[in-house]
Design a protein around this nucleic acid. Sequence first.
RNA 1: GCCGCUGUAGCUCAGUGGUAGAGCGCAUCAUUGGUAAUGAUGAGGUCGGCAGUUCAAUCCUGCCCAGCGGCACCA
Length: 653
Amino acid sequence: MAETISLTLPDGAKRDYPAGTTGAEVAADISKSLSKAAIAVSVDGELTDLSRPLDRDADFAIHTIKDEAQALELIRHDCAHVMARAVQEIWPDVKVTIGPVIDNGWYYDFDREEPFTPDDLERIEKRMREIINLRDPVRTEVWPRDKAIRFYEDNNEPYKVELIEAIPGDEDLRMYWHGDWQDLCRGPHLAHTGQIPADAFKLMSVAGAYWRGDSSRPMLQRIYGVGFRSRQELKAYLTFLEEAQKRDHRRLGREMDLFHMQEEAPGMVFWHPNGWMIYRELRAYIQRRQDAAGYVEVNTPQVVDRKLWEASGHWDKYQEHMFIVEVDEEHAQEKRVNALKPMNCPCHVQVYNTGMKSYRDLPLRMAEFGSCARYEPSGALHGIMRVRGFVQDDAHIFCTEAQIESETKDFIDLLSSVYADLGFTGFKVKFADRPEVRAGEDETWDKAEAALKSATEAAGATYELNPGEGAFYGPKLEFVLTDAIGRDWQCGTLQVDFVLPERLDASYIGEDGHKHRPVMLHRAIVGSFERFIGIMIEDHAGKLPFWLAPRQVVVASIVSDANDYAENVVAALKARGIRAEADLRNEKINYKVREHSVGKVPVILAVGLKEVEEGTVSMRRLGDKGSKVLPLDTVATDLAAEALAPDLARKTG
RNA sequence: GCCGCUGUAGCUCAGUGGUAGAGCGCAUCAUUGGUAAUGAUGAGGUCGGCAGUUCAAUCCUGCCCAGCGGCACCA
């Protein structure tokens, strides 16, 4: 070890210290105020404790609470420790497990017989504040693993023992203390508990979670917390949560009268006229785009004999998740067992397999908006986002291996254009390559992965790797959208499949006059319409773009003498393809404006005696404060243009 | 599926071992008004379902169903 080490500060200045000097000592050497404000240091970009001895030349930075990323990481991390200590002080029998930092906060998993109650959370929070006020210094030591294992065995912390045993190699472990409380942790940590802002965290909820994420292992209790640097930041986050709640598609679905769900059909959507209008518009748009992109559309049965599912391999793997339909046929020897189709692909191969296919028929792009049913586990259901009955913008492209690349590129182009039309300007691409357990030769995988990669690049898309997450039958691309409040949604997909054509014996006659296997590309752009509409509702907070809005215009009369004129206005708008309705109720205009604003109607046209006389309307846009009086013709022309779906608008120019 | 919580009027929610309330919405009447709630009156409930305890259960107990928050799952 060098006697002297040289630290390069962020401003470029170099400072020399004896090896073994700690970050805290460096901070104290620079200034007294920095010494007080310091919470951690970075050594060559790596965040670490103030108390850690420095042993080499490095780029060096001292962090205070002003360094947001580092501060939040440390605060949340130490909140997890403080919470675990609070829990163990209140209930000494509780066993601790793990407690990582997550978006906006942290969680910690505990093993305790009794469930934690909301009152318990308050109690824990209070104790946490007390611990923070103690300003206990954080201390770490490096222990050999044997010693650590013995320590946790003696202290009856079996989960910690298991954690250590799962750490590969025989590296030493870092043990953590604040006060008398101990945990296994590699850090980094704050200098003392008092550096946690005591008024900027909140315990949010308790939930069950499997030990090590494995559903065959014990269910632990997970307490979630959120933590920030200041009370203001916490408050801002809580306000954000309230805003997010207001755009919940389940709530908006009810308020806008889009759909409902009920006990008799869990996970199935009852679409109301308003919601179904969105669905129809979106589906018609996708249909037009796919027609234009050279797809053919088919429709295949929903109830299909188990034999087909056995042949495709689904019966084996997904039987538990299929709706089974048994039919007693009067003269049959045994019951006929069918399944509601969970997906379209096996049926598409049946259509493909009729007649002889030639290489001249490829690529064959077969689309279907087919109703699928999957018996999803009850706990997975979530509004219309995760359902048991759904329709995808599903299609299978039968092609040769040589065509994978151009088909992929064409698909990504189509998908980008559709996403842009739907208001999602950017999307991420993930490339999921071969999983450990897979079908097919490595050589085939090489070819498929290479084709998929170069096609993705040719389409101008950058991707991140999602290693080992491909389907068992082939690599896949996942397309991920980000919504208005920053949440990611995986919607589109493209999967290369060599297995199903084999299993279901699909073939074509090649140029050489011999039989060949086609490749199948499974692909979807929006994924399920149900889920995508849910995403659109939340993304727009219910204020859908005009062409998708189920109710586009309400013409509201101000006095009953304007009722006839209001009806005429509605007729004029309808004649131009606009979804317009009249509100002639005996209510004040304030009342009507409020009701239709709450109902997210994009345009309200108020008409009173003045408008009747002048042939005008008073137009108010959703979200605007005021209104504008305009000639009816102008409004009708403008709104008719606005009502066109993006692809139709492009055609009209 | 697993852990926890919840289920009362169309919606949001109070409430009680002696069969129930508010606001909004709905209906009727009055009001004809100018851009986010006009007033009055009225109707509306097997208190999620099935058992049990009790003289008596919406309330207590058990089982089931559904929803919510997570976990696991997502062909």
